[in-house]
Amino acid sequence: MKVELESRIVEGPEVVGVEPALDLQGKALPAVQPGAYSRTVTLMPRAELERRMVKGPDGVEFEVEPLRDYYCEAGPTVMPAAYLKIVEDLFNWARSRSIWILGFGTGCGAIEMRPLMTPRFDAYRFGIQWRPTPRQANLFVISGYLSVKTLKRAIRCYEQMQNPKYVVGLGSCTINGGMYWDSYNTIKRLDDYLPVDVYIAGCMPRPEALLQGFEDLKKLIRAGKAEGANQYAERFDWYKANQKQIIHDWDMPDYNW
């Protein structure tokens, strides 16, 4: 992947053919002059991603291009299920009984997960627990609205999780934008960017609804239908195109495992 280092003039809003904006009293606001807010934006990649010379411990200098040399460019692959059906069934049973959630609260809905650890709801008895690192987690709960900035981190985390992995969209915001449906910075359809297994509707859904959602996810896993990771690998290009369409400063490798 190449990071483009360029400087360009960004035009102000286009005003041709657009109705004049109205203020609260219905009065027409002064039209905006084209180019009034023009400013020069320099898209600078992060310093640690720039090509640079590195001196090794043996004194030899060599050039490093971090994105190419420090990361692997291979994309995800479809991982087949176990050869024997009975083994796969056993694995699916274990997966459904041992759901490790990534402790990454992406939005306000994360507050509804805390009660699940308390004596009142106690999700641990269903084999659900929280892990602090994506490497060990199987379930990624997108808890509520996802801004573009968080989406970038969410994608990185999702790609670091290991193959049978599941995504639960929590709250209306993940389904159709919810109350952020006209926001300038939040996505409205989570399943365009990550393969979602279960949606839990509500704003916010109560902890009981969450437990019900996790039970539904368990049924999917037991039936072997929760193959989001393989789906992601199969339609990788489509997901990447969607992601890159809205993440403009893509300064990371395409697949961050």
Partner: peptide, 8 residues
């Protein structure tokens, strides 16, 4: 079993 059964 789940951890042994992870595919990747």
């Amino acid at each position: 079993i789940k951890n042994y059964g992870l595919r990747s």
